[in-house]
Design a protein around this nucleic acid. Structure first.
Length: 299
DNA sequence: ATTTGACCTGGGCGT
DNA sequence: GACTACAGGTCAAAT
């Protein structure tokens, strides 16, 4: 396609920022690696194309947005060396997990609506199918650009999604989530749509959590994912099957192999949150993705 | 307060 | 190649 509106370099060591790892670790679902190993993706109203500069600790980024958008998305305003050092001081048990995932960063979505609907797709599902579903939803938004044959769309607004029929999503393979997604889209619109969602980012984590739990179809786990990845509540600790495995291994050995109940969810999540504070979400991401990568061989 | 069963679909792995 | 288990869970009903 024609020249990108913005083209800039980001200079940072790979151990502090691995763009592919950060983009494909289950925090966002609209990034792809191209044949020539560039990373191309979209978030909210922006698209990005990222390539590693030969022999240098730097990236060349083309984007619809200025550097600040990219920097915010990958949370480059947080110093990874500092975060890692603080995390290992607060929890030495984290060190092997952080070392196993060098360059993995906690991201910060620029679009709460996209994150909200992305994680509605994630319940009892696996990353590859979530990816397909999120990209189906994204196709309801206007096309931004085509980069290396990859169709990049602006993620649709709430009003658009609220008009989608359940049957339509069923046909696209959404399964039973077709019903919850269309219902929740309408509920979200009636609560004020995007403005309401954004307001959850401005209120304390605990209150945002309660608001999100008011949607039928959003439980603790999804509420925490939305809070963490979409509303910048970085102290949120979603407990999914992977974090549950890690948490029982590290902190609650007497619960290993047991089912996750409401009470245990609350205790495990609060424990990690109290241990790492506003860095808890970053810790969670390292524990999560290390377990995703290694869980098959571990058991 | 915990446990159980139902729920769409499609990679992936072992038989 | 069919089978089966399971995946970034949630809800309602039955212990």
């Amino acid at each position: 396609m024609g020249g990108a509106p913005y083209s800039f370099e980001i200079e940072i060591p790979r151990r502090y920022f691995d763009v592919g790892l950060s983009a494909s670790s289950g925090q966002m679902f609209r990034w792809k690696q191209t044949a020539n190993s560039e990373w191309v993706g979209a978030n909210g109203k922006h698209w990005f194309r990222v390539r590693v500069l030969d022999g240098r600790e730097a990236y060349r980024v083309e984007s619809s947005g200025p550097p600040t958008v990219f920097q915010s998305l990958f949370r480059l305003d947080w110093d990874a060396a500092d975060v890692t050092e603080t995390l290992t001081r607060l929890g030495p048990e984290l060190e092997p997990y952080l070392q196993a995932m060098p360059g993995l960063r906690l991201t910060r979505s620029g679009d709460a609506v996209e994150t909200f609907f992305s994680f509605l797709c994630s319940a009892n599902n696996h990353i590859s199918r979530i990816t397909g579903m999120v990209n189906h939803l994204a196709a309801y938004g206007p096309r931004l650009e085509v980069v290396d044959v990859i169709d990049l769309h602006r993620f649709p607004r709430v009003a658009t999604l609220a008009k989608v029929e359940e049957a339509e999503l069923r046909e696209k393979g959404f399964g039973y989530r077709a019903a919850t997604i269309t219902q929740i889209a309408r509920e979200l619109e009636s609560r004020g749509g995007e403005a309401y969602l954004r307001s959850l980012g401005a209120m304390p984590y605990e209150r945002a959590q309660i608001e999100l739990l008011g949607f039928k179809g959003i439980g603790r786990k999804l509420a925490d994912c939305i809070a963490l990845f979409g509303l910048d509540h970085t102290e949120a600790v979603p407990i999914d099957t992977h974090i549950w495995q890690a948490a029982t291994r590290l902190y609650f050995p007497h619960w290993q192999g047991t089912a996750l109940t409401d009470r245990k969810y609350e205790e495990a999540s609060a424990f990690i949150r109290n241990r790492f504070g506003r860095l808890a979400g970053w810790a969670q991401q390292a524990l999560f993705y290390e377990n995703v990568v290694n869980w098959r061989t571990r058991k």
